[in-house]
């Protein structure tokens, strides 16, 4: 089985990091994984996105064109990718920044005010992780206990204080 995910938003919202977290979770489960970022002018203040594939077999195309799961963190990213989600797939949308209601009825869409929730809980810049929490809940890709060792690997030691904040943000997302 293969799960293909696109994370998309503004540069600076942590979409590439959120994708890396998912890729590392797959790595720790001995899955085949790939992570492909957008690079270039779009990273510098414009839209950023990354494709993440998790699979039990070798991954062909790392370039995702029809995602099983979309995480959209701003309006332009939502507009760009919402139609490409596979029927039966999942869209997790930051409703603080995406004002449009999702009109697709053939996918499971979740509107989560993650930017507002992050601010409310004193977790600035962690809207991305709240959405990853929701992704883990809806896909069952990993349980929350599996995330801590992954975060410890991914976050450099000098920023270790961020691990607790990330865990808190994940828990918020998983409770929604």
């Amino acid at each position: 089985m293969t799960t293909e995910t696109i994370f998309a938003g503004f540069g600076g919202q942590g979409v590439l990091f959120a994708g890396k977290l998912l890729a590392y979770l797959g790595l720790n489960q001995d899955k085949q994984v790939s992570w492909l970022p957008s690079y270039g002018p779009e990273m510098r203040g414009g839209t950023a996105n990354c494709s993440v594939c998790l699979s039990d077999s070798p991954i062909g195309s790392p370039y995702v064109t029809e995602p099983d799961v979309l995480i959209a963190m701003n309006g332009p990213s939502y507009d760009k990718f919402i139609e490409s989600v596979k029927p039966g797939g999942i869209a997790i949308i930051d409703s603080t920044l995406v004002t449009k209601e999702c009109t697709r009825t053939d996918i499971h869409s979740f509107r989560i005010p993650s930017t507002a929730l992050a601010a409310e809980h004193g977790l600035p810049g962690m809207a991305n992780i709240i959405l990853v929490g929701k992704l883990l809940k809806e896909t069952g890709i990993a349980v929350i206990d599996a995330v801590r060792p992954t975060l410890e690997k991914l976050i450099p030691p000098k920023k270790a204080n961020l691990i607790e904040a990330n865990m808190k943000a994940l828990a918020i997302g998983m409770a929604l």
Binding site: K20, L27, V33, S34, W35, L36, Y39, I59, P62
Partner: peptide
């Protein structure tokens, strides 16, 4: 190419 250079894999 840019795709292979930029992507992460195990």
């Amino acid at each position: 190419d840019g795709l292979l250079g930029q992507m992460m894999e195990p």
